[in-house]
Amino acid sequence: MKPAPFEYAAPKTIAEALDILGQNDLDEVKLMAGGQSLMPLLNMRLARPSLVLDLNHVEGLDGIREESSGLRVGAMTTKRVLEDSDLVRSQYPLLWESTVAIGHAPIRNRGTVGGSMVQADPASEYPAAALAFDMEFVVMSSAGERVIQAEDFFVTYLTTSIEPGEILTEIRIPRLPPGTGWGFQELARRHGDFAIVGALATVRVESGLCCDPRIVLFGAADRAIRVPAGEACLEGAPPSEASLTVMGDAVFDAVEDPLSDVHASAEYRRDLARVLSKRAMSEAMSRAS
């Protein structure tokens, strides 16, 4: 279980990194961020790049900064940094919950925010958080910079809309509107495992009625998904058990073709989507003010 041979480059600037990308066959290059998903694939020889381009030495790709609209998180910022950030914990609690649910401490120490986003594992927490927050992804290429909205970013299993030759540099995370309640639920075989299914929910309650409800699922499809049909059931409805039941049924109907594997059948995942979205939304309702 040793990696196949490859060349290695560790550029110091984004320009240098883009330059190296420009000089190589893009199908043969793997960008390495924290490596917590890529290294197992290399060790198992399931990934066989001829060049590993290590982003760990590129300047300016890590750190958190808050602006009026929200957070700007460098793509190479480790999860540990978010976990340890009082700002994230107090002002972006849903992001913090999503962070600490990822794997275990050693994985979060090295794994990066950008790495998880680009890996786009359908059962991982961060892509779901991206949809919950309407995050924006800043990518650079030799042609310049472009911004991709979260809803356009995750394409399918392990695939994003980042083009070969582009590098994710920053994730912009808007603040949730004041009064937004949030909930986070996931079910894994063991604590820290990839989720079988997980759900994030946000909602505001205005004049006793639900407003802008949002439901995001992970582990329920080929990518993290929002469930508009479920959200529609709640818009303008009272935050009640009855509303949650209606919403849960709509989520169940909307999750059409979940994955089936050794840990969970498709029917089980579908039902978990119902159960966990209700639990997450129930938490969100109780937190909404």
Binding site: R190, H191, D193, V262, H263
Partner: peptide, 16 residues
């Protein structure tokens, strides 16, 4: 075989 890694063959941890 369908359980060929420690992602699928699950040993108990301190939480279990």
């Amino acid at each position: 075989p369908l359980t060929t890694s420690f992602m699928d063959y699950l040993l108990p941890t301190v939480f279990e």
